[in-house]
């Protein structure tokens, strides 16, 4: 369907994907994307437009009390954080 993907499109997708890409990566990505989309393009001719999109019919939402399961240790989780202050994850100022 798409035989070309522009550099602007790649940059837009990288922005949506929260990825910083080098120029070389952008060039390779545009080429790969065209080839991969061509690979999956046969679906346009599969004649499935009238089907219902797939759903796990037997699945229902299950909720539970918002409590801390006994086997989770807060400190063990926080220890993995690149940056923290007391029991909080620390991020750059956003406002």
């Amino acid at each position: 369907m798409n035989n070309k993907i522009t550099k602007e499109e790649i940059e837009h997708l990288a922005d949506l994907s929260r990825l910083e890409l080098t120029d070389a990566e952008k060039t390779k990505m545009a080429k790969d994307a065209v080839e991969i989309l061509a690979l999956v393009d046969d679906l346009q001719k599969a004649g499935v437009e009238k089907e219902q999109p797939f759903l796990f019919e037997d699945q229902v939402n299950i909720t539970r009390e918002d409590n801390n399961p006994q086997d989770c240790n807060e400190e063990e989780f926080l220890k993995q954080a690149p940056d923290r202050e007391r029991q909080f994850f620390k991020v750059p100022r956003i406002l």
């Binding site: 369907m1 679906l43 346009q44 499935v48 089907e51 999109p53 797939f54």
Partner: peptide
């Protein structure tokens, strides 16, 4: 619609 939704429809047909 052209990709994700279509693939979900094809998934129903394949199953």
């Amino acid at each position: 619609d052209a990709y994700y939704n279509l693939a979900q429809k094809a998934r129903t047909a394949l199953r």
